[in-house]
Design a protein around this nucleic acid. Structure first.
Lengths: 221, 221
DNA sequence: TCTTTTTTTACGGGAAACCGTAATGTTACG
DNA sequence: CGTAACATTACGGTTTCCCGTAAAAAAAGA
């Protein structure tokens, strides 16, 4: 049974609607945090006073606003919270819409549920909380379909590194030495050219500028 | 005085919190639309039956979901709504965070207010509605500062055209003929190179990829 | 109108990127 | 161990881009 919930969410409006959803599920013992550090603090305190939370509902991205934070994002909070209270249920409520990132989250990061901020998010939120209360996990049904639709090419770590460097102004011919220093392979100039050509050919592009624009659009860089 | 409001917002959760904010302002005559087409429909009907809305609160981006829509986004809705009911107050409530896009919106698109989905958005929303009720316009205070900070170079029409073409994959050497066909001057290859060099030098860049990435970030392309 | 100034365009040498091919290095498997 | 299959790297020729200079054109001023 879920009775005590912590909401970690910097957007006031999102916070409000999560609260309302919880109230509709007759959950009234709710705490709020607008920063990850504050959230972790509340979790730690609750554990100490033997009144720990049953569920953490958290966003992934928290906007920096001057106040320096130890935990910059939701993922950091999740990792830290798991250490303090391993049995804490965690539900991610985020606008993340990059299929690869969602997939990663659902399968590898040991969370109990994910609800995307989208059309029917309030309804989904309710359902997710109900499922988690029954010790089941809740994930969007069509993650795989999303994967296939949206991302015609799945960028590797190196791919993204290369494109990022280009977008930062590094000359192509200087990338090999950079990769070598970082211990990343492959690092040969030909390999970099090959990777760029692969990406461009799959996506039907002809120039690096297109690639950079595309990656900015879909948010991988 | 604002008594009748239409909320156009595809996210259920955002819709809920806007509703709650309105209720706290003692506005209870609220209609909802999860699609732009539906929103325009409701506005048109209200005008016909002489019970028109005082205020439209709308998002900018509506996620496509299979149902084909005439009006794909909030900007289209705004344009259409203005035609149907010129005196309708319009408040944009969006997660848009690209300074150039926000600036464009606030200064050129004839809306009455803009609130960004961010940390204190609910509070800002209230203030914005109060201001609009007094026939004043409400915009984030620091738009100009943001602009000045972030955008050290003001892009001309031609600048943006050139960068857009590059981001679409056109070869630099092919741009002159394109510009000639469109009747845009200057169109010489040297002039294009000069303009690119100007932009890059002012912004401290060395490669076109940087320029494309930057323009994507601030939203000019 | 003629000159001066500015803008636009043309040209050419050199650097970087592009592209195909070949050599080298790595891994897998019999 | 040897060989095939694959990945990575090296090399050379061609194209495109970069950059400086100078010519041509347009605009401004006297």
């Amino acid at each position: 049974m879920i009775t005590k919930v912590l909401i970690a969410e910097d957007h006031e409006s999102a916070n409000i609607s999560v609260q309302k959803t919880l109230e509709e599920l007759d959950i009234t013992n709710i705490a709020y945090a607008y920063y990850c550090d504050d959230a972790l603090n509340k979790i730690t305190q609750a554990v100490k006073t033997d009144s720990s939370f049953d569920l953490l509902i958290t966003d992934l991205y928290f906007e920096p606003d001057g106040h320096h934070q130890q935990l910059p994002g939701g993922m950091d909070l999740i990792d830290a919270a798991r250490k303090v209270q391993p049995d804490l249920k965690i539900l991610v409520f985020s606008a993340e819409n990059r299929p690869a990132a969602i997939d990663q989250l659902c399968h590898n990061d040991g969370i109990d549920g994910f609800v995307r901020k989208a059309r029917n998010d309030a309804r989904e939120l309710k359902e997710a909380i109900r499922e988690i209360a029954r010790h089941r996990r809740y994930f969007p049904r069509h993650v795989k379909q999303l994967m296939e639709k949206k991302n015609t090419y799945s960028f590797s770590e190196v791919d993204i590194t290369i494109i990022t460097l280009l977008a930062q102004g590094m000359l192509q011919k200087d990338i090999p030495t950079y990769l070598q220093r970082k211990g990343i392979t492959p690092s040969g100039l030909s390999s970099i050219e090959k990777k760029l050509n692969q990406m461009k050919s799959v996506l039907g592009f002809s120039k690096n500028e297109q690639l950079v624009a595309y990656c900015k659009d879909i948010g991988v860089i």
